[in-house]
Design a protein around this nucleic acid. Sequence first.
DNA 1: CGCGAGCTTGATGCCGATCAATGCATGTGG
DNA 2: CCACATGCATTGATCGGCATCAAGCTCGCG
Lengths: 259, 259
Amino acid sequence: MFAEIDTAPRSSPTQFRDLPERAATWKPQTQVSCSDCRLRELCLPRGLSDGPLEAFSAAVFAHRRLRSGQALFRAGEAFDSVYLVRSGFVKTLVLLEDGREQVTGLQMRGDMLGMDGLASGRHVSDVIAVDNTEICVVPYERLETLSQQAREVQRHLHRMFAKEIVREQRMMLLLGSMNAEERVSAFLLNLSERLTARGYSPSHFVLRLTREDIGSLLGMKLETVSRIFSKFQKAGLIEVDGKQVRIVSINGLSGILNR
Amino acid sequence: MFAEIDTAPRSSPTQFRDLPERAATWKPQTQVSCSDCRLRELCLPRGLSDGPLEAFSAAVFAHRRLRSGQALFRAGEAFDSVYLVRSGFVKTLVLLEDGREQVTGLQMRGDMLGMDGLASGRHVSDVIAVDNTEICVVPYERLETLSQQAREVQRHLHRMFAKEIVREQRMMLLLGSMNAEERVSAFLLNLSERLTARGYSPSHFVLRLTREDIGSLLGMKLETVSRIFSKFQKAGLIEVDGKQVRIVSINGLSGILNR
DNA sequence: CGCGAGCTTGATGCCGATCAATGCATGTGG
DNA sequence: CCACATGCATTGATCGGCATCAAGCTCGCG
């Protein structure tokens, strides 16, 4: 039904993600310099001068490759690094003592992870790859040092923190005051925006999450997610086929939000 | 029904909050040094050595006094400072384009505010006093400088950021996967904990928020909040009289959460 | 005194949860 | 290669928790 739009136009490792014979060759890789990383414009302060850039590059200690399903870290583990998604997709989960868990985010290229661990020295969330994923590891100590040497790095870091705070505030608003249709539509529009910013098609993409994970993220049951997808499809707003989604009417979707 | 437990044991400005004739004298105050601020152990890095301490003290540019109902800042205003609650209580609201708003937090002594503005240079939330409140104003530029000079200050700042991220994650979990009774009980227990940490009674306190604000914070309607308070009272878990609350059975309340 | 803001409580209705059946794709072991 | 299990998604039927609508109360205040 849908053409393959699953490939990352500017990020080579992901373009093989659906080919099992390539996935089988998925292995840790040697280190890469930040200077020629295509992620640079997302991950680094804009216009970072050469000195700080190289310093930042040195701060990226290592890269980790995760296969879909593998964990980057889990709640309870000691915090020592923050992470940047270089390619692929991960989900973040927070856990309640009684076993209940909730997806709190879907992160993609350029998104920062793991800052939660700074509060107590231990992570309070799980981060799980939902696609073959490449991660830049930035030891916190190095980031601290670098941040003290270069004010622009410090400011960039603060901005990353602040963005996460704002994102979570928006999620609280979604969870606290939107109905199910509004949540799903906000989710799809947000996904579209972020994928567009990363060079993907604005209208045609692959949900990395199952209906259950989407439901968890949006505070509803998987059946409800499924029903609303079907309803939107009948209304001519989207086309859905499993995880493949095409947004037919952005305006229609936005209309649901501002109603 | 309840004795007056409304006074702040270690924070002088608030102990007059319910006396209107004192409230009428509420006016901007001269500057105070951080070194003899009673908030010090909450707001400053523990064991901060003398040099950085004085630097930090100098970073607190001014103090602002707000009467109940006044705004510290509003969404859309330019960001230039972060704030610390020195005494009193404020609520934070985020707004949707269509006018919907949601309370996202209740902040009290030692809590930091305004970091959201760092993301875009403009605040995206309103902060409104829900009691006569005293605020320490810390210009961001100064904080940046100080943070570069003293690693312990930087680390403390990062930890404040991270705590806010973790707090918001917990709120997402509450909003996404708890029913109404669990939310109210989590709210009361959290309030009790935080007030205890500040030297108030763990069992006997004053809700600063209206039923409507509590409902907004917890993602439910004010009538539901009211009903659940009544239900908890009948069950012998709490005693409520307007904004006065006494927790009769902490275990009973916790039991609702882990059920 | 009357008025409005905030709170409580009841009656009713709806949205989304729950329970359940089915289909489909993938993987696995006989 | 088939039988079977497992994970994920869709759809229907029913139920219940919370929203909604409404009435009445208290309290502080102009």
